[in-house]
């Protein structure tokens, strides 16, 4: 078990390998489908003009993401009525939907880790090596358990995206995850997919 503090250095990232279990402590931010699309369109590929509080939010999240972590998560949040926000359930969402965006987002913000479930594809794996960053797998569905490692909600941006899609800035302690894609070109997901394909082909040949 490896204890890791956020922000994370590139050196620490290069020292991580597929299969290693980690516990993360520090400040991270949630971001999923709407956030990745918003980042790419407004600030990275610039296909739409910033509007409303876009620029203000961008400036606020940059220091959080510098050497930081994006968590693919749409939490259940209590205390919405009086803004006394508390995560009651906060497991990972499926990451592969961000495959078109992830590598660019990580490189733009100099982020060192992405947490999600299910793993990601070749574009993200190439990005892991270049940036460098790692893909950390949390246990899908283990939402009440993971919520216990979320100690405080520090801020929320773009709540108008909806509770699941907003950017929640959270302080975590001993957040559990496993490295499944590292900065050395290794992906557990690619290995399992390839091995299971061989078994499938054998099973379905007549």
């Amino acid at each position: 078990m490896r204890e890791i503090t956020i922000p994370i250095s590139a050196e620490t990232i290069r020292d991580l390998h597929v299969g290693e279990a980690v516990r993360l402590t520090g400040v991270m931010m949630t971001g999923r489908d709407t956030v990745h699309k918003w980042m790419i369109e407004t600030f990275i590929r610039k296909t739409r003009q910033p509007e409303g509080d876009d620029l203000k939010v961008y400036e606020a999240i940059r220091p959080i993401l510098q050497d930081g972590i994006i968590y693919h998560c749409g939490p259940v949040v209590a205390g919405l009525e009086n803004k006394a926000y508390r995560f009651t359930a906060a497991g990972p969402t499926t990451s592969i939907r961000e495959e078109p965006y992830q590598a660019e987002v990580m490189s733009h913000f100099n982020s060192r880790g992405v947490i999600g479930k299910g793993g990601m594809g070749p574009k993200t794996l190439a990005g892991c090596r270049e940036a460098p960053f790692v893909y950390l797998h949390a246990i899908g569905g283990a939402a009440s358990y993971i919520a216990q490692s979320v100690k405080r909600v520090l801020e929320v941006y773009k709540l108008d995206f909806g509770v699941p899609e907003a950017m929640w800035v959270i302080e975590v302690k001993d957040f559990p995850a496993v490295v499944t894609m590292d900065a050395h070109g290794q992906s557990l997901h690619a290995v399992v997919s390839e091995q299971s394909k061989k078994v499938l082909e054998k099973l379905i040949q007549d």
Partner: peptide, 28 residues
């Protein structure tokens, strides 16, 4: 193994959710 660890976490989570009356999974 990672598989064993995942199932252990899953079973712990089920217990916690029941005790605390919080959603098993955030995707309800």
């Amino acid at each position: 193994s990672a598989a064993h660890g995942a199932l252990e976490t899953i079973l712990k989570n089920i217990e916690l959710a029941r005790e605390n009356s919080t959603p098993i999974c955030q995707d309800t």
